[in-house]
């Protein structure tokens, strides 16, 4: 595991909003068992926005469900606000808000009925409901849609309603499982602005699962989960700093021979392809740039201008995943998981 030394590591779990150590979840199937979460440890301090980032199938949803006590854990410890996930389930549920990944609000009930339902099962008094529900509807921008069935709302509005419902009992911590999955970019930004307001105004601790790299940048702390393991953690800038070197970007006419030629060169750590575009990670831009240009010229590969670019979150992640795979391959000579990255396919333009 690639770790940054962190003061949080040594904080007491009771002072943490969310804590997990050595958390493991194994599912039994007919063909054997699958370890969805593997010896995962994380700490979230109060007021933080923690993003658990990883590709589909990495174990994000399982992690959040185990922490919430929705799934039993196979090994390890986890707690929210010092309450154990398995034993103090109801203590947690009074203090925590959660949005599950699927559209999980009763679809045949209206926005208002949903709000009242969740207020009711959280045990809110009528006076509190009268005060709090319009406030939350206003906050979520749903004031004009109170009579609409939840099932008839747009994807973005469904998520906002879910957020409003999960905030009804004024939780100290909210856990959001891919809250912007399948939501259009404008609604995604709106949703994150709402989360930003919550953090600023209420000091709410937010734990969010997401496969979107741009959302990772909006978190104060992130953990990269891959194949059930947390392979990196830290602030977004720290994560980027974990990747050695700098990036040179260019587009050759023929990327395959260019990739082959450059990969083995001295001072080149790795090459990532984005369609026709190549990102070359080098130790020193001013020194390696002319060398690469020369190499391409000898091969007769035409290209546009080589220019240094800022490393992006998804590049950092891909780099870290590749390094993790190399470590794993060296350790057990086992093949890596060919996991698809949403960001890699959709976020490059």
């Amino acid at each position: 595991m690639l770790e940054r030394a962190s003061v949080q590591e040594h904080a007491k779990s009771s002072e943490l909003a969310i804590s997990a150590s050595g958390l493991t979840k194994t599912f039994k199937t007919r063909r054997g068992s699958i370890t969805a979460v593997d010896d995962l440890s994380l700490q979230v301090s109060p007021g933080e926005t923690y993003g658990l980032i990883g590709p589909d199938g990495a174990g994000k949803t399982t992690t959040v469900r185990v922490i919430l006590g929705l799934l039993t854990r196979t090994a390890g410890e986890s707690s929210i606000l010092g309450f154990d996930s398995m034993n103090d389930t109801y203590e947690i549920r009074q203090r925590v808000g959660y949005i599950a990944q699927q559209n999980v609000l009763p679809a045949d009930m209206t926005v208002m009925e949903n709000m009242k339902f969740f207020a009711g099962i959280q045990g809110m008094s009528k006076q509190d409901q009268i005060r709090r529900i319009p406030e939350l509807l206003e906050f979520a921008g749903l004031s004009n849609f109170t009579g609409r069935l939840a099932g008839k709302l747009s994807g973005g509005m469904k998520k906002k309603l879910a957020l409003a419902c999960c905030l009804i009992h004024e939780p100290q911590v909210v856990l959001l499982d891919e809250p912007t999955l399948g939501v259009d970019p404008v609604s995604r930004r709106e949703f994150w602005n709402l989360l930003g307001n919550l953090r600023a105004e209420r000091g709410l601790t937010i734990f969010v699962n997401t496969p979107y790299m741009d959302e990772a940048e909006r978190c104060t702390q992130i953990g990269l989960i891959y194949a059930g393991r947390l392979i990196a953690r830290g602030a977004p800038a720290e994560i980027k700093a974990m990747v050695p070197g700098h990036v040179i970007e260019f587009t050759p006419t023929d990327s395959t021979p260019a990739l082959r030629r450059i990969s083995g060169m001295e001072g080149v750590f790795e090459v990532q392809t984005y369609g026709e575009r190549l990102h070359v990670f080098v130790d020193d831009v001013s020194r390696r740039k002319p060398e690469i240009e020369a190499a391409l010229a000898t091969e007769g590969i035409a290209h546009n201008e080589l220019r240094p670019v800022e490393i992006r979150m998804e590049e950092a992640f891909i780099s870290l995943v590749q390094r993790q795979n190399q470590i794993a391959a060296k350790a057990q000579a086992q093949s890596s998981n060919p996991l698809a990255w949403k960001a890699a396919s959709g976020g490059v333009s």
Partner: peptide
């Protein structure tokens, strides 16, 4: 089956 159980289970409902 609808998945709503997940959202209800995370409330203090017994």
């Amino acid at each position: 089956e609808l998945g709503t159980i997940e959202q209800i289970l995370v409330t203090p409902t017994r």
